[in-house]
Design a binder for these strands. Structure first.
Lengths: 326, 326
DNA sequence: ACCAATATGTCAATCGTTTGACATTTTTAT
DNA sequence: ATAAAAATGTCAAACGATTGACATATTGGT
C-alpha cells in the first residue's frame, strides 16, 4: 500500500504529529528534524492524502472549469491558459465539457460539488440562473450573465462588433452582413451584433443579420453559407467567430469571389491558432491572456475571502488584427 | 455550511445509517424510505462528500490526463473525447498541460498521487521511465514507450509514414522530403519517418529528412521552412503533423508554387478541425475516436483489476484522407 | 399464531491527516 | 544559575461517510 504519514514518522524516528507539523510548517521545528522527515518522505515517495487533508477543512485546491467543448480552439486555448495559471498557484483543474447540454452541465455542477472544489470558472451557459446560485460556491463567469452575485468577465463585444463592421466599411464594403449564432438571452454574441447594427445605422446602412444554428456541423454550415452568399450579393461579411470566417473564405473561393476586392471578411476571436496559421484573416482579437488571468484572479479573491466585493462586470478591450481579408 | 449526511437523516426522520444505505443501495430498504431520503437530499441540495467517501477506500473516480498542451488541436480533440467517454462512465478528469516541461510533468505526477487519482492517461513524455514506474498506479500511455508494464496505445505510425510517402509518390513526386520533429528515443514520429524512408528506399529514391525543432514558434518554423524550400526543389513534402503542413502550404503560396502540380503535400493527424476547415489537405488520419476509446477502456480494465493482463502495445490502423494537395 | 423475510435503528470502528492541549526535554541568552 | 525560548512528544478529538455487528420492529405467508 501507499505509505502514510505514520510510516514516514516511523522511518524518520519521530512522532506523527511532528511529521504533520513539518508538512504544514506549524509550530517549532529544528532544521535537522525537518531534514530527517523530508528524507523519509522522499525515501518512501510519500504524498500526503489530499482527501484526508481536505476533511479537516483544508481547501482541496481543485477548481472546476466548465466550457462547452475544448476541441473548439478558442476554448482549448482559454482552458489551456487557465490551467497553466492555476497550476502555477498550486490549483488543479477538473475539466468539464458541457457539450452545450444543459443536463450534462447540471450533472457537472453536482459532481463538482461532491468533489468539494474550491470554486468554478463557468464558460458554458445553458442552465437557468437559479441552478448556479443555489450552490454557495465562488463562481466566475466568462462572457455571460448568470446571476447578480456572479461576476462576469468578458471582452468588449459591442466595441468588437462596431470595430469589425467599421473595418469592413472602411475597406469599401457597403452591403455588409453579419453571420452569428442564435441570439440567446445574455449571449455574448448579442453584443457583437448590436455593435454591428449600431455602426451600420450610424452610417445609414442596412444591417443584414443571418443566424446560423449553433448545432450545425461545419459542412452543413458551409452549405447554408453558400446558399446565403449566392442569394445575396454581400461585399462585406462579419463573422462572429473565426471558424465561420474560414468557412466564408472557403465558399468565396468556390464562388470565385476575390477577397478583399469583391468580398471583405472579418472574423472574431483571434486565437493563437488563427494568428499563426491564418494570418491572412482580419479579425477582432479577444485578449485571451488577460481574460484568463482575470478570471483566475477574481476567483482566487473570492475563494480567499468569500465576502470580498467584486464588480459585477469586467469588460476588457478588444484589438483589431489587420490581415488581408478586409 | 453544506448539508451533511446527518442533516439529511434528521430531515428525513431516519438514521444516518439508513441514509448511507440509501445512497449506496446497501441492505434492505423500503421504497417509501428511499423516497423520503431522496426528497430530503433534494430539498437540502445534498451532495455526499467524495473526500470522505474515498477515505473508506472507495475510488475517487478521478483520472489524471497529462498532455503537452490542449491548445494544440490534436491534443484538444483527444482530451475532449477522453473526457466525454470518462464522464459517461462517471469518472472526472484532472487536466494536466505538461507544456513539454519535465519538471512540470513530475510535479503533476506527484499532485495526481496526492489527489488519489484512480489512474492516469499519459500523452506527454519527457520523464525517464523510472518516474512513471515508481508509482504503483494504473497508467496507459499514448504513443510512447514508458515502461514494460505500461501499455501503449498508438496508431500505426510506420504504416502512416509509408502511406503518406506512397501517396506523394503516386501523385507524381520523386524528390520527396519529410518535415518532422526532433527524433527522440521512443518518439512516435520516428515510426512515421521510418515508414517514409522504407517506402522511398523500396522505390530506389533518396530520403531527405528535415528536423524542425519542436519549440519553434509557428512564425519561426515558417521561416525555416521557407529557407529549406528555396534551397531544395522538392516536389513532395510529407509533414509529420497537419499544422506544419499548413505552414508549408502557406510558404508554397508565397513562393508561387502550384499545389499539387509543382508541389505535393501530405499532412498527418487528420483532426476534425483539419477535416472541417482544411478539406483540401491530403493527410493521414489517426483514428482519434478509437484511440480515445481504447485508452479509456484499457485504463478502466486496469483499475478494476490491477492484475489483468494487457498487451504491451496496441496499434490501430490509420486512414488516408484524400484531399487536393496530393 | 409462528417463522422468515424485510425494514430500520444503535453503536462503534475505520479511513489518513490535522490540530489543540499539555507535558517534557533541550538549547540559548543573560 | 536560571528563566525563557525552542524542540519534540503523547493523546485525543475532530473531519464526513461507510460498514459490520447486533438488536428490534414490522410485514406477509401459511
Amino acid at each position: 500500500m501507499k505509505p502514510k504519514l505514520n510510516d514516514v514518522a516511523k522511518l524518520a524516528g519521530v512522532s506523527a504529529t511532528t511529521v504533520s507539523r513539518v508538512i504544514n510548517n506549524h509550530g517549532y521545528l529544528s532544521s535537522q528534524t525537518k531534514e530527517k522527515v523530508f528524507a523519509a518522505m522522499r525515501e518512501l515517495h510519500y504524498q500526503p492524502n489530499n482527501m484526508a487533508r481536505s476533511l479537516q477543512g483544508k481547501n482541496t485546491r481543485l477548481i472546476g472549469v466548465i466550457f462547452s467543448d475544448i476541441s473548439n480552439p478558442f476554448f482549448g486555448e482559454m482552458v489551456s491558459r487557465i490551467e497553466k495559471i492555476l497550476f502555477a498557484k498550486n490549483y488543479k483543474v477538473i475539466l468539464c465539457n458541457s457539450a452545450d447540454d444543459p443536463q450534462k452541465e447540471r450533472d457537472y455542477l453536482q459532481m463538482l460539488m461532491a468533489n468539494q472544489v474550491d470554486g468554478i470558472i463557468a464558460g458554458a451557459h445553458n442552465l437557468g440562473i437559479e441552478e448556479y446560485q443555489q450552490y454557495g460556491l465562488p463562481i466566475i463567469s466568462f462572457d455571460r450573465y448568470l446571476s447578480d452575485n456572479i461576476p462576469i468577465v468578458s471582452s468588449d463585444n459591442y466595441q468588437g462588433g462596431w470595430l469589425a463592421t467599421q473595418t469592413l466599411h472602411q475597406a469599401g464594403a457597403t452591403n455588409v452582413a453579419i453571420f452569428t449564432g442564435k441570439s440567446h438571452a445574455g449571449s455574448p454574441t448579442n453584443g457583437r451584433r448590436e455593435g454591428y447594427e449600431a455602426y451600420l445605422t450610424a452610417q445609414q446602412l442596412t444591417p443584414h443579420v443571418h443566424e446560423l444554428p449553433f448545432e450545425l456541423t461545419p459542412a452543413l454550415k458551409m452549405m447554408e453559407i453558400k446558399t446565403i452568399m449566392t442569394q445575396h450579393q454581400y461585399d462585406g461579411i462579419f463573422c462572429s467567430d473565426d471558424l465561420t470566417a474560414l468557412l466564408v473564405l472557403n465558399v468565396a473561393r468556390q464562388l470565385s469571389l476575390t477577397v478583399p476586392e469583391q468580398l471583405r471578411v472579418v472574423g472574431y476571436d483571434g486565437t493563437a491558432l488563427i494568428r499563426d496559421y491564418h494570418s491572412e484573416l482580419t479579425t477582432v482579437e479577444q485578449p485571451l491572456a488577460d481574460i484568463s488571468t482575470l478570471l483566475v484572479s477574481l476567483l482566487l479573491q473570492r475563494i480567499e475571502d468569500a465576502n470580498c466585493t467584486l464588480e459585477s462586470k469586467y469588460t476588457l478591450p478588444v484589438n483589431l488584427i489587420k490581415g488581408l481579408t478586409a
